[in-house]
């Protein structure tokens, strides 16, 4: 059963006809071609599909597309602007927090949400904030470092 869906993704408005069963992840990847958001499990257990819905981090695999109607979605493709990486992205690059990269978009979006909400998290708060994002490559050491560096970069940006 298809229904009309009006949705804003990375600032672009889209008017689509979407089956009621489709998740936000399906629409992003299949209808809009935004394949930066990954499907790692389809059950909200790995975090690879994390996007921001009206600024809140959500598992797009567990969000029906029509539940996002009329809302603002930010995906990894919308994070950097004009070829300049977002400070969270810069930190992941500089700290070597990326290996295979499949979890990276979700990690980055979750980190952004975490730091938006709490610009000065403790180590404990970082661990709690990212516990829904699995990574099988890095052992997380450099991911924690990247979040801490991003925290500093964002704080510096605030000062400017």
């Amino acid at each position: 059963m298809k229904q009309e869906l009006l949705i804003t993704v990375n600032g672009d408005e889209h008017h689509l006809l979407v089956d009621t069963r489709r998740t936000l992840l399906d629409v992003l990847r299949d209808d809009l071609g935004l394949t930066g958001t990954k499907n790692g499990c389809g059950a909200g257990e790995c975090g690879a599909c994390t996007v921001l819905l009206d600024g809140e981090p959500v598992n797009s695999c567990l969000t029906l597309a029509h539940e996002a109607a009329g809302r603002d979605v930010l995906t990894i493709e919308g994070l950097s602007s004009g070829g300049v990486l977002h400070p969270v992205q810069q930190a992941f690059v500089s700290q070597g927090a990326i290996q295979c990269g499949f979890c990276t978009p979700g990690m980055v979006m979750t980190t952004k949400a975490l730091l938006d909400r709490n610009p000065d998290p403790t180590r404990e708060e970082i661990l709690a904030g990212l516990r829904g994002n699995l990574c099988r490559c890095t052992g997380y050491v450099k991911i924690v470092e990247a979040v801490e560096v991003a925290q500093c970069l964002l704080a510096e940006e605030e000062l400017v």
Binding site: P57, N59, G132
Partner: peptide, 12 residues
């Protein structure tokens, strides 16, 4: 409430 799932899960 904070013990449930992940930050993403608790958003929804």
């Amino acid at each position: 409430a904070s013990f449930v799932g992940s930050m993403q899960v608790r958003s929804r």
